[in-house]
């Protein structure tokens, strides 16, 4: 009853917390050409876990901003303008905070939950695995 498969259907969070689940969801998103949303989601988690004392946090924040938000990528398209502005200003003013991507991550997560995750649970990738 508590197999990985039954956990995957519980929530997006439980899917992404499982190695095989996250891997399979990634394959699905690659086919759907929106794997950037998942990479961004994980990047936000990784950023939050970084040591504040490290000087490289500014570099990483800038790099995440450039790669996913500054250009008009699929991530940028799913974010509210105010959220993008907030991150842009934080990077510009070098006001780096471990929670600076939290709002953006929540918005991307909500979109994934409502769309890609539901599609994944009825996708060939998932059903073949099952």
């Amino acid at each position: 009853p508590d197999s990985p498969l039954s956990r995957w259907t519980k929530s997006l969070h439980s899917l992404l917390g499982d190695q095989d689940g996250a891997h399979l969801f990634r394959i699905f998103l690659e086919r759907e050409k929106c794997v950037d949303t998942l990479d961004f989601w994980f990047a936000c988690n990784g950023f939050r876990q970084m040591d504040r004392q490290e000087t490289k946090t500014l570099r990483v924040a800038k790099a995440i901003y450039k790669r996913y938000i500054e250009n008009n990528s699929i991530v940028a398209k799913q974010l509210k303008p105010a959220t993008k502005t907030y991150i842009r200003d934080s990077v510009k003013k070098q006001q780096i905070d471990s929670a600076m991507f939290d709002q953006a991550q929540t918005e991307i997560q909500t979109t994934m939950e409502e769309n890609a995750y539901q599609m994944f649970l009825t996708s060939e990738v998932y059903l073949d695995y099952v």
């Binding site: 499982d18 190695q19 936000c44 990784g46 970084m50 490289k56 990483v60 800038k62 995440i64």
Partner: peptide, 20 residues
């Protein structure tokens, strides 16, 4: 010094679920 892409990739990898 690694590239920006490398630092983002490391950030992603650090947050990925590990082997059970």
């Amino acid at each position: 010094l690694d590239s920006e892409d490398d630092s983002v990739q490391r950030c992603i990898t650090s947050a990925m679920p590990k082997h059970r």
